[in-house]
């Protein structure tokens, strides 16, 4: 299965350049995060991938087809969950999904079973026959995810799926998305909840001002492009500082949460921890001060507009 390939895509609205030049690869079986400041062109790019907008320039391939010349081929293979979530207020959850199933021309016979399956997946089974206007924002988001999955797409485009979700729903969303990726679905997810993406995504594409500025892999045991801070806390801060100074490591001032230390890789972190323990420093915890993604993101998007 092929995922999404985007090369040199540009899209303007009159004078406004929404997407300047974006490159993107969404491999099948992986979760790719699309992160960037507000107005950096994420939603516009997703609309292009969802066959709703034409790009001005560049090439796009979604599930092996061109969304401009073969939109129907693309549509039957993608599930799109928009950021501004509108819903048919007076329809029940079941009717919403049945309408979408009809719109994708799914066989009628299997539709009810598919709908039950999806409602169970997003934990809305007990609200199946309530009109969607009584749903909370988070419940609507979950219905939106179910709606995007009705026709078992091979490419999933999720625009801010986690917004409005309670912590449990977020964890469940993570489970659903990871499960789909393991089945071979190519997932592109745009989000602002960076810590969330750390655990969810395999790769992150960072965009700013309509351009792709970096692609971060989030495989475990990777060497990040820049050293990032880890936070080390000990029962007694004095031996900790003494040991860090002795080994010549750059560190910040001690605070209630411990001391920040610059570390480049997981291997280096493990090595430092081993040294500290060996030398009898009473370490309580040691963890990255910010997620991989958050760190990379903040470094790359300082010129927020």
């Amino acid at each position: 299965m092929t995922g999404v390939t985007v090369a040199g895509v540009r899209r303007t609205f009159g004078e406004v350049v929404a997407v300047d030049s974006m490159d993107l690869e969404v491999p099948a079986g992986q979760v790719t995060a699309l992160v960037g400041p507000n107005g950096s062109g994420k939603t516009t790019l997703l609309l292009i991938l969802a066959t709703l907008l034409t790009p001005d320039a560049g090439s796009v391939s979604v599930a092996g087809f061109d969304p401009v010349t073969q939109p129907r081929e693309v549509r039957r293979r993608i599930g799109w969950m928009p950021d501004v979530f509108g819903t048919w207020e007076t329809l029940t959850c079941r009717e919403v999904l049945a309408t979408v199933a009809d719109a994708f021309r799914l066989p009628r016979a299997t539709t009810p079973a598919r709908i039950d399956e999806l409602l169970t997946l997003v934990h809305l089974a007990d609200l199946a026959d309530r009109p969607t206007q009584v749903l909370s924002r988070g419940q609507k988001q979950r219905l939106g995810l179910a709606r995007a999955l009705v026709h078992s797409p091979e490419v999933l485009l999720l625009d801010e799926p986690a917004s409005g979700l309670d912590p449990r729903s977020r964890i469940e969303l993570r489970g659903v998305v990871r499960g789909l990726a393991e089945q071979g679905v190519a997932v592109l997810i745009s989000s602002h909840v960076l810590a969330e993406l750390d655990e969810l995504a395999d790769r992150a594409v960072i965009v700013a001002r309509g351009r792709t500025v970096a692609v971060e892999s989030m495989e475990p045991d990777r060497v990040t492009s820049t050293p990032r801070p880890w936070r080390v806390r000990a029962l007694d801060v004095v031996p900790l500082l003494a040991r860090l100074d002795a080994s010549g490591r750059a560190h910040g001032d001690p605070g209630p949460d411990g001391v920040e230390v610059e570390i480049s890789s997981d291997a280096e972190a493990a090595q430092l921890l081993a040294e500290l323990v060996r030398d009898g420093v009473p370490v309580v915890s040691m963890h990255p001060a910010a997620g991989v993604l958050e760190h990379a993101y903040l470094a790359l998007t300082e010129d927020r507009r």
């Binding site: 609309l47 969802a50 709703l52 129907r72 549509r75 799109w80 928009p82 509108g86 719109a103």
Partner: peptide, 11 residues
Amino acid sequence: AGVLATLQSTL
């Protein structure tokens, strides 16, 4: 209401 694109993105 944000529901037109939902229809347009189907078959």
